[in-house]
Amino acid sequence: MVSSVDDLTINLLASVIAGTAVWLFQRLRRRRRDERRKRFFGLSDRAECVIVAPKHASAPTAHSVNRLDVAAIVEIATLARECGADVALKVQGQDVVFDTGFDAATEFCIGGPDGNTRMGAHLATFVPGASMDRYEDVGDKLTLWVGDESFPREPGESEFVLLAKVDTARPGRPMFLVCGQTAITNRAAARYLATHYRALAKRHGLDGRFCLILEVVRPDAYGHRVVRERGDYTAVAFAGRS
């Protein structure tokens, strides 16, 4: 009888020790995963995160934002808050005066240069190998360019977005660019970034920059849900910068 009690006690202790070890391992792994995510996005606890949204193209007021761009903002803001960051939203619109420095905080800049002049400046300054045509020049055939390669929009069938992570003068405070041909492509890229950051970190490192072109397939039918990576253009997009 004593032996049976001793065996039971030993088995219980072994179970407790094993369970505690598993719990500690999972907690450490979760903490390490969280720290890697915070480092990748430059979003430590209480860090400042600025989301710069584009003006709604057809809205009469200067600070209107397309509902699909709002969905992209919510996606990014949720990610930032999960990392413990403080989030500030700015609608850049057509104002060329930048009231936020590009190295003061981690920044997520959303939208094409037509609706977000800050995006146009960021592309020219930090990603000189990439650009987007102006809507007034090409209309619905709005085209993204990376080097000599073009990605013309086919409305409702094939639409494109540039997704980039950019170095700034302040280490640990990167800038993320979501430069889409339409609001739905902006939303698709924001979702892609939130769900694929581990793969991007593995490919480019936690502190590395990158530039991808994503294709949103048949958005009229599938919305933002079907996304293909058309290519990694990191080398071409940052050509001319050290």
Rank of each mutant, 00 (worst) to 15 (best):
P128G: 08
V146F: 02
C49W: 06
G147R: 08
R191E: 11
G231D: 03
V236Y: 02
C211S: 04
P60R: 08
C211L: 06
D95W: 02
D34A: 15
R33E: 15
L177C: 14
A239G: 04
A235G: 00
P128I: 03
P174Y: 09
I73K: 02
T195Q: 05
S150R: 15
L142Y: 07
R198V: 13
D148I: 00
T100A: 12
Y192W: 14
S131H: 07
A104I: 10
D69E: 08
G205V: 04
T143W: 09
R31V: 04
E35I: 01
A59F: 04
V65D: 09
E82L: 13
G223A: 04
A235W: 00
R173K: 15
D86E: 13
E157V: 13
G111F: 06
L68T: 06
C49E: 09
Q181E: 15
C49Q: 09
E229G: 01
L68F: 05
L13Y: 14
K202I: 00
R228E: 05
L163T: 04
Q94Y: 13
L68R: 14
R67L: 09
P174S: 13
L79F: 00
S4D: 13
C179A: 15
G111S: 09
D86K: 13
A235L: 01
E149D: 02
A235M: 00
L8N: 06
T168W: 03
T185M: 08
F108N: 13
R67G: 01
G139D: 12
P171E: 11
R173E: 09
G240K: 12
M119P: 05
R230E: 15
V22E: 12
R191Y: 03
L24Q: 10
R134I: 00
D140S: 11
Q94F: 06
G93I: 04
V217C: 11
P128R: 04
K90I: 14
R218V: 06
D69N: 14
V236C: 08
A59Y: 06
P219M: 07
I110V: 15
H63R: 12
N11V: 12
I76K: 08
E48A: 13
P219N: 06
R173S: 13
L28S: 07
T125P: 01
L177I: 10
F176C: 09
I10H: 11
R134M: 03
R81H: 07
V70L: 12
G120D: 04
F25G: 01
C49S: 12
I76N: 09
R31E: 12
T185K: 07
T125N: 11
L89H: 10
R29K: 11
K141Q: 13
F102D: 05
